[in-house]
Write a protein that binds this DNA or RNA. Structure first.
Lengths: 358, 358
DNA sequence: GCGGATGGCACAATCGATTGTGCACGATAG
DNA sequence: CTATCGTGCACAATCGATTGTGCCATCCGC
């Protein structure tokens, strides 16, 4: 098919025979350490030329086996099909490549069994490091990794058996809540004259911290908070939709401020809001914990919190770079606040770096 | 650290010594072919028990080297951080796992050099198949794959040197355009009494086919189409925003129907639309080629086309399963049409299967 | 002309698993 | 008592690359 090119993949032995040298010479040339091994420059050139014309590529299975290094770094995420995690994949790849590691990202569908299975397979391919992002059971993953001496870091959901880097959900929720309150207008109805929180799962670490941040901010401004102001109804859009519909019915209108705990929940909320007249919407200030480009072009203003993916993974790689796996702390990274100014479209108040999103 | 467990990773040789058998026996047991190799059941049990307590996992570098099989199947995509491609990753993983292959998904950032580099690295890890999704230069990728005898399929963007599976962009655009026209109301102004197309890049295969579909549908209903009705202004939101703003200014209002050629472009369009009074929006019917969950909760109705990711990759895997790499055809897969019915929220007319999106 | 210092490379072991082949032993048949 | 057969396993080669070690030639100095 190709002219001048062997049908089978060529090995260093093929090249050695063609060049009339030994395989170890070929290996030295292709690894760039031929000077240390005192190979003549003419020989090196000849071997390199042959490698090019025969399209030689090293067999990383063989080389990894011998060197007991694979060059692979793995990351597990719950799913690809999600703004937050797909953005994690994108940043992870870049940071891995900068370090000359080859990134492997696999999803585990929030299935604890698949999580462990996937990690075992990654280990069998001899990944050198693992980033455990959003695992349902990080400590079980840690146990497997420890048994195989694979260094790893938890990201997004913390564990107790490895260093963890998570979003500062408490701070983010607190800031968002304060901003919502300060931008909202008082309501004559006492039931409606307070902020509400909707969405998420109360046993989930992230949701719990956000609820705490919300509650503390509300207490700071209103002197107290009632349980009925928080409804961790789940993440699904339908659940959030009916949660807000109930709230609206019970209170005879929208509250002065509404904290929606994910973009998926926001989808449901917006579905309900579309059934209301525009002036009702104007009475409420909306915030969403998580970011979506489309959410910023909805017909009403929306405050958003964007998780700092750069920051989370940057810190994870810092831990890997410095091999500081032993202090099993939980490091918190502040998210970004995206608050449209009163006037128009401009946004943000934060010192955290932003990163461009196509 | 662990009690009862060696510090180093254990090999079949370690297990062999512990069990008092040979490494080949251990290998046979762990591969499940110990019956064919006439290993006593008692021996097999003993080896399996040892493998469990010592948390043995096979070294796939070694096993792959020997068997010259890696168990890996690769896919390259332009980026993760995008609804369409992240959904491709998700489906790809599932289809690969169903076939007991281990999926490797890597992004190439639409950079031709990185594309080739990435493919070469995947090959050096000895992937057995490659799905080339959205490559800027599929034929160069094909050349590398052919030189290394790696079977591959193009998806989304067609090439000439391998079987390609692409969206039926012509059909989708045609159907969307016809639906837009049929649901739109005539305008008194002749300039505004026709549909317009905005977004995309005319040299891009997908955009070109969509423009053809649009043009043919418009011709079918109006007897002709003018060049000014199509503006492939690029994908960026800003470009689409100003393109529609120009159109609005030139025509003295919105056209009766507007075809937006991507969700990113739609973001820009919506930004402009927010500056218009609601009754102006009511005069125009909007369609978007590509799907986004938030786009369906905008304040105005929107017809959408969702690419059939299941269908695209299902067909790609069918080609791999049946090893029919030789007919270098371009196979087209019809997208899904998501058309809200006049009344409310229900959607869709299509026989293509839908798949749930969390 | 001899010893030592390079220069230039080949040899062979090794990484961990797989797999074709063959040996030893006991049971059975004749 | 011996030939045959089946059972149960061990041996050794192999995949492709890496790397410690050592050999041979040449050259230089004296």
């Amino acid at each position: 098919m190709q002219p001048d090119v062997k049908k089978r993949r060529s090995t260093i032995y093929d090249l050695a025979e063609l060049a009339g040298v030994s395989a170890s010479t070929v290996s030295a040339v292709l690894n760039g350490n031929w000077k240390e091994r005192r190979i003549a420059e003419a020989t090196a050139k000849k071997v390199q030329r042959l490698a090019n014309t025969h399209r030689y590529t090293v067999n990383r299975q063989a080389s990894g086996l011998r060197k007991s290094r694979s060059g692979l770094i793995g990351m597990i995420i719950p799913m690809h099909d999600n703004r937050f995690f797909s953005s994690m994949s994108q940043v992870f790849e870049r940071l891995a490549r900068e370090r000359h590691w080859y990134p492997l990202v696999v999803s585990t569908l929030r299935d604890p069994a698949l999580e462990l299975e996937t990690v075992r397979t990654l280990i069998s391919y001899r990944i050198e490091y693992l980033v455990v992002a959003g695992a349902t059971d990080p400590d079980s993953v840690s146990r497997i990794c420890q048994a195989h001496a694979v260094a790893h870091v938890n990201v997004d959901l913390p564990g107790t058996k490895a260093t963890s880097v998570v979003s500062d959900n408490y701070w983010g929720a607190q800031q968002l809540t304060l901003a919502l309150i300060d931008r909202s207008r008082a309501s004559r109805s006492p039931k409606r004259n307070k902020p509400y929180f909707v969405g998420g799962i109360a046993t989930d670490n992230a949701t719990r911290r956000r609820m705490e941040g919300f509650a503390d901010a509300v207490t700071a401004r209103f002197g107290g908070v009632e349980a009925s102001q928080l409804d961790a109804c789940g993440y699904a859009a339908e659940l959030a939709e009916s949660a807000v519909e109930r709230l609206h019915r019970r209170s005879g209108g929208l509250p002065r401020a509404l904290f929606v705990n994910s973009t998926i929940a926001l989808e449901g909320v917006v579905r309900f809001l579309k059934t209301l007249p525009p002036d009702e919407l104007a009475a409420c200030t909306f915030g969403c914990y998580d970011w979506d480009p489309f959410a910023s072009v909805l017909s009403f203003p929306l405050l958003m919190v964007r998780q700092n993916v750069e920051g989370l993974l940057g810190e994870a790689f810092r831990i890997i770079d410095t091999r500081s796996f032993d202090d099993k702390r939980v490091i918190e990274i502040k998210p970004e606040l995206l608050f449209p100014s009163q006037s128009g479209d401009a946004s943000t108040t934060n010192d955290a770096p932003r990163h461009a999103v196509a």
